[in-house]
Design a protein around this nucleic acid. Structure first.
Lengths: 345, 345
DNA sequence: TTGTATGCGTTATCAT
DNA sequence: ATGATAACGCATACAA
């Protein structure tokens, strides 16, 4: 099946390429019957504009790039879902790339997208990301750019975030309200802003309740995996047999903790209350059901794309765009794993 | 930051565009020093070929399209992960689109990818997909095309699948070996080949063991969701109080069943043994841990891309390509939910 | 209302 | 070894 071009249609109709082009784009300066003839023939021949040529002419690809740490992740896959759909509604396609939590890969992916000349880039940083060069490059090249969730405060671009400090504070306050006296925090890696903020929220809540902060009660994830949760659970019980509350940086790790405790007959919440972060789907089907913080992943995706879209539109029109930061609300979801005064325990 | 073109480099060096182009592509007929001068300047200026122009000239975009029912799905996100990485290794980027299990959307997504002129398409069909036109269109246009997991037998293209019949047969045989006499099958929707095959496997296993097949013991999913599992569990217990085994078409549904049983004090596996399909991550952290069939999602992604790559290469060279079907092995994963003679029950 | 001419940036053919 | 020229398919300023 040969590709149909404007030229073919023009030749077949005995008119110029220009007129065909104008007719198809519904320009006002084409006579009604010419327009109709062109449209009819184009339809007959299943004409499709050659997007490569259109890209070259218009200098836009109607494609955006999305870089996330990994697809197989409840939170990120939800964001992806939202971004893809929202982009499509607005005529954009999405190229997805993973950094696998590696800075080197993240840099490579940024480079690939720049070379690809996507119209805009949305990114959630990897845990290793402590170097700005590749991000600055995006700014320098004047490519519309949005960061979400795992952001870099120092880069001037639009951002979509939550108040991690406040959310973590609420989680800890909830544990304290449920009679937890010795609360361990399994924190995220040292670099990411959100794991820093959750850690600060933990400290602030202790302080507010006059509970002395103890660095020995803080464990730091490297891989942020289920297995790490299992391993930390074991270690924590060994180090602090009297621990009565655990706040994990994310549900996946909390699930590891729960799994170890279940397998070793340590009662949750009876002996130790547990709360996670992010509200992964599985949290609601575990035994006991895991308390957590709900993060509006879908909304985050939608807002991220729309911020990018706004910037892409300004970019096209040559209008200056002022980056904005959108902060979305979180909700604490109290289930079974954190309620000490629950009669069933 | 202005875009650097071949022309700029040529002008700055006082040579022709042609020579610059050749030098950068390491053609043999350029003098060593000219070549070096060009390469140096290009590097200095951060020259990047304009991919739009390259696409137009070469008629390929080094981009493939991937259509799946939904991203937020343990199996599919694993396949996506593999395809993205494998594609990148081979110099391809991936545009991802979701059909949301809707035939209409699936058709639209295929159309979008064709218009985008991707170099190839990988698809896993939606549950509604019973119409071939859009798939035939891909074949007609001679676009390299691979289907995986949820395929259409009637379309002649490369496929990557598992033996759903055999896997389901094994699951049922396992239940029977564990003293299940009255086994319910919660099957998938009527269209998809894999839900048909799992259903056939169920029937064959019963037959082999001289257990009469009873249509009343078959429940058919529409949405294939957690909630549907919950609802069916309730209905099943009401319809058949003496049910002692359940085989669900996929883990998500099995988890719904488990959740209902847990909440209503119906013992698994004591009263009812349960087995799922696909080995979702959460299955191993539930109480009781869910038995299931492991599907090689990662391998499936890799094989799918490589089949596509092979076809794309043939396509480029003008060599005819003969579609192949790759069948991957599955494993039955026996955990707690299906072992009736387990001493702890 | 229609058409001519030009350029987007690259690649490839064919002279020189 | 180097370069002039055309072509990929489309969009648009400008001329007729």
């Amino acid at each position: 099946m040969k590709d149909i071009t404007l030229k073919e249609i023009a030749t077949k109709l005995g008119i110029s390429i220009t007129t065909v082009s104008k007719a198809l784009k519904n320009y006002p300066d084409v006579s009604a019957k010419t327009k109709q003839a062109v449209i009819d023939l184009a339809q007959n021949l299943h004409y499709t504009p050659n997007s490569f040529a259109v890209n070259l002419r218009t200098k836009e690809s109607k494609t955006i790039g999305l870089i996330i740490p990994e697809v197989v992740h409840h939170f990120f896959s939800n964001v992806i879902n939202a971004i893809i759909d929202e982009a499509e509604k607005n005529g954009y396609l999405v190229i997805i790339l993973q950094s696998n939590e590696s800075l080197a890969l993240e840099k490579k992916q940024v480079e690939l997208l720049i070379k690809k000349r996507v119209d805009g880039i949305i990114i959630s940083l990897s845990n290793e990301s402590n170097n700005d060069d590749h991000l600055k490059e995006i700014i320098t090249r004047n490519i519309p750019f949005v960061m979400f969730d795992k952001i870099n405060k120092l880069i001037s671009c639009s951002k979509v975030i939550i108040d991690d400090q406040k959310a973590a504070f609420n989680a800890i306050q909830h544990l304290i309200d449920n009679n937890c006296k010795k609360i361990v925090h399994i924190r995220g890696p040292l670099n990411p802003q959100n794991s820093i903020d959750r850690y600060i929220g933990y400290k602030k809540a202790l302080e507010k309740n006059n509970i002395p902060f103890d660095t020995k009660l803080v464990y730091t994830c490297e891989t942020v995996t289920f297995q790490e949760g299992v391993d930390f659970a074991k270690q924590i019980i060994k180090d602090h047999p009297d621990v009565d509350g655990i706040f994990a940086v994310t549900d996946l790790v909390a699930v590891g903790v729960l799994s170890y405790f279940n397998d070793n007959n340590i009662k949750v919440p009876g002996q130790v209350a547990v709360i996670g972060f992010s509200n992964w789907f599985m949290s609601q089907v575990l035994t006991p059901k895991l308390s957590t913080i709900d993060q509006p992943s879908h909304e985050m995706g939608i807002e991220s794309f729309n911020l990018l879209l706004e910037e892409m539109n300004c970019h096209k029109e040559g209008i200056p765009f002022k980056p904005r930061t959108i902060e979305l609300e979180t909700n604490i979801i109290i289930r079974e794993s954190s309620i000490k005064n629950n009669p069933i325990n």
